[in-house]
Design a protein around this nucleic acid. Structure first.
Lengths: 175, 175
DNA sequence: ATTGATCTTTACGTTCACGTACGTTTCTGT
DNA sequence: ACAGAAACGTACGTGAACGTAAAGATCAAT
C-alpha cells in the first residue's frame, strides 16, 4: 500500500508548500555563486538534487538552503578543505536523515536509536574540532589583549614624561 | 677576492648573541618546509633576510623565527589569504620596529610615541578580527552543544522506552 | 507563442599556495 | 682540503576551489 502525497507539480499551482528557490536566488541569498553550489554538488558535498529530470533546473527547498548555508559557515569558520568538510558533514547528513525519519513514525525504535547514536558521534567530532579551534583563538585573543595593554602603558608613560618634562628615562610601569 | 678579517668565525655579528638557525631547521621546528619560508619571503610576507650577501644562506635569529611562527599561526587561525595577512602583519612589523627602536635610546620620545600609537592601531585591527571570529565560533559551539543535548535526550528517551514498557520482539542491542 | 532572463552541461582558464626537479654554490665536519 | 649535506635560484608542475565562455534548454510572463 502506498500513501500518495500529491506527487506532482508542487511549484506551479496553488499552495507552494516547499517554497523552492532557484540556484541563483540561493547563491545571492548566501553570498556566493551558482558555480560554487554546482561545484559542491559535483564533488559530493551537496547531494544531487534527487530525481531531477536530467537537464532541468535545480530547485532548493528551505532545508536544502539551510544545509548549504551550514556548509559555507563551517568552511568559513573552520577553514578546512572541502574534502575534510565532506567527512565532517556526515554529521549534517545524519541529522538530516534523523529529522526525515522522525517525521514518519514507521521506523522502529532500534533503528532510530542507531541513527541518533551515529549522529551523536558526528556531532562530537564537530564539537571537538570547534572547541579546539575556539581555544586556540581565545589564547590568541588573550595574548593580543596583553600586548595591547603593554603598548598602552608605554604610550601613557611617554605622554606623562612629556607633560611632566621628565628626562627620557626608561620604564614607567605605574598604572 | 676580498679582504677577509677575523669577522666571520661564528654566525652572526660580533657576539654569539643571535643563535642563528638555517632555513631547514626553522622549517622543521615550525612544522613547515623551506620552500614555504622562501615563498613567504618571495611575496613579501617575510622581510628579505637583510643584507644577505647575495647567494648566501639565509640565517634566522630568534626574533625572526618567532615572527615566522606568528605568521603561520595567524594564517592557521584566521584562515585568511597571504595577501590579507600581509596587511594584517603591519602590526607585527610595527611591533618589531618598536622593539628594535626601544633597544636603542637615541630615538626621541615623540617618534617613539608615534610608533607605539601606530602599533596600537594595528593591534586593534587584529583584535577586532580575532574577536569577531572567536564570537562566531563560540556561537557555533553553543549551537552544536544544544543540538548534542537534544540528541542525547532523545536517545535516553528511546532507551528508557525499551527498558520499561514494551520490549521489542527480540533484540537487546549492546550499549 | 514568443521572449528575455536564468539555468544546463561541458570544458578550458585562473589564482593561490606551495611541491618538485635541477644544476650550482655554500657550509660543516674531519 | 675535501666530501657530503644542505641551501641557492630558477623554473616548471600541481591540487584545490572556483571563474568564465559557449551553445543550447527551461521557465515565468506576456
Amino acid at each position: 500500500m502506498s500513501v500518495e502525497p500529491v506527487a506532482g507539480r508542487e511549484r506551479g499551482d496553488g499552495a507552494a508548500r516547499s517554497a523552492s528557490m532557484r540556484i541563483g536566488d540561493v547563491a545571492r541569498l548566501l553570498g556566493t555563486t551558482p558555480r560554487t553550489i554546482r561545484y559542491y554538488e559535483e564533488i559530493g558535498l551537496l547531494p544531487e538534487a534527487p530525481a531531477r529530470p536530467a537537464g532541468q533546473h535545480r530547485m532548493y527547498d528551505h532545508d536544502e538552503v539551510e544545509r548549504i548555508s551550514e556548509v559555507m559557515r563551517l568552511k568559513h569558520l573552520l577553514g578546512v578543505t572541502l574534502e575534510e568538510l565532506k567527512t565532517l558533514l556526515a554529521a549534517e547528513d545524519a541529522r538530516a536523515e534523523v529529522r526525515a525519519q522522525l517525521r514518519r513514525d514507521d521506523v522502529d525504535p532500534d533503528r532510530r536509536r542507531e541513527l541518533l547514536s551515529e549522529a551523536l558521534g558526528h556531532i562530537d567530532r564537530q564539537l571537538e574540532l570547534v572547541r579546539h579551534r575556539a581555544a586556540e583563538l581565545a589564547r590568541l585573543e588573550h595574548e593580543l589583549g596583553e600586548t595591547r595593554k603593554r603598548v598602552k602603558r608605554k604610550i601613557r608613560g611617554l605622554e606623562a614624561a612629556r607633560e611632566g618634562s621628565f628626562p627620557p628615562s626608561e620604564e614607567m610601569t605605574t598604572l
